[in-house]
Design a protein around this nucleic acid. Structure first.
Length: 281
DNA sequence: ATGTCTGTAGTATACAGA
């Protein structure tokens, strides 16, 4: 099974490239972020195109900002718009933004996430980001983590190796200890960063600013993650960043991350094979 | 790197967000 995540930075602006990407990469499950569409706009733009390709979908949108989706041609059950207790902004008790959608696809509980950006550590959006992540971690004890995948634009670089030059970042958002600790809580709950597991020492980025030729100089960040529970991580056959999708005219500023899984074993418990990086140690 | 690309409003350009 091929699972992918991609922050498309407007599904409408990305329409031709998105459809072409579905045709060429043929993901079985595709998690999208920043569709920037209402549910009605999503429906009118994509319903026919996706049906023709055999995809069911779940979209959670609000219009001009945010917007997340899961596309699947291996089943799409128990769709959830947002996670329990997902905080709103500016009022944590207010309505949640369109930043999380979950569905069960071929036995895997998949979440497409668009974590709040944070803007800067002294901005209210930063506290919102941390609260959002804390609540996300807080729901994990109640779920089957082993068969869960949290994926999407996490807006956090897990380590200094996940940005092009840590010296340029200082105390800016995406690299601060509290943000990384929030990711650590997801890891401690049993989720694995399967791309870093597969490429422990490589320079792997998923986002490059549009400005200043950042992509061509590979001045990027790895902020789009696939965090997989044990039964899923044990099936990982390959992972890569689809840099082709960042090239040419009219790209998103993010590239897709693609993960191929071996078939689930009979009995469905998962082989529990440690990832390559763990096997080497 | 702050050099661009989205969206909206509204009709040309400015602003906000990332």
């Amino acid at each position: 099974m091929r699972l992918a995540t991609w922050n498309v930075n407007s599904a409408k602006a990305r329409l031709p490239r998105l459809l072409d990407w579905l045709d060429t990469r043929a993901p079985d499950v595709a998690c999208l972020q920043e569709t920037k569409l209402s549910d009605a706009e999503w429906e009118s733009t994509f319903a026919t195109e996706l049906a023709a390709r055999g995809y069911a979908y779940a979209h959670v949108g609000e219009g001009r900002w945010n917007g997340v989706a899961i596309l699947s041609r291996v089943g799409l059950a128990d769709v959830a718009a947002g996670f329990p207790g997902q905080p709103g902004f500016p009022d944590p008790a207010g309505p949640p933004e369109a930043r999380a959608v979950g569905a069960t696809c071929d036995g895997i509980r998949v979440w497409s996430l668009y974590v709040p950006n944070g803007r800067s550590p002294d901005d209210p959006h930063y506290a919102y980001k941390l609260a959002w992540l804390a609540q996300l971690a807080g729901v994990l004890p109640a779920v089957d983590v082993s068969r869960t995948v949290l994926t999407g634009d996490m807006n956090i670089a897990p380590t200094d190796a996940d940005v092009w030059d840590i010296r340029k970042f200082g105390a800016s958002t995406h690299v601060t200890p509290p943000e990384r600790a929030a990711l650590g809580a997801l890891r401690e709950a049993g989720l694995r960063d399967v791309v870093r597991d597969r490429w422990p020492d490589e320079r792997v980025f998923t986002y490059w600013d549009y400005r200043a030729g950042a992509f061509h100089q590979d001045l990027g960040m790895r902020i789009d993650l696939v965090l997989a529970g044990g039964a899923v991580a044990g099936r990982v056959a390959a992972t890569w960043v689809d840099r082709q999708a960042r090239k040419g005219s009219g790209p998103s500023d993010h590239a897709p991350v693609i993960v191929d899984l071996d078939e689930a074993p009979d009995g469905d418990i998962g082989p529990m094979v440690p990832p390559p990086s763990a096997r080497r140690r």
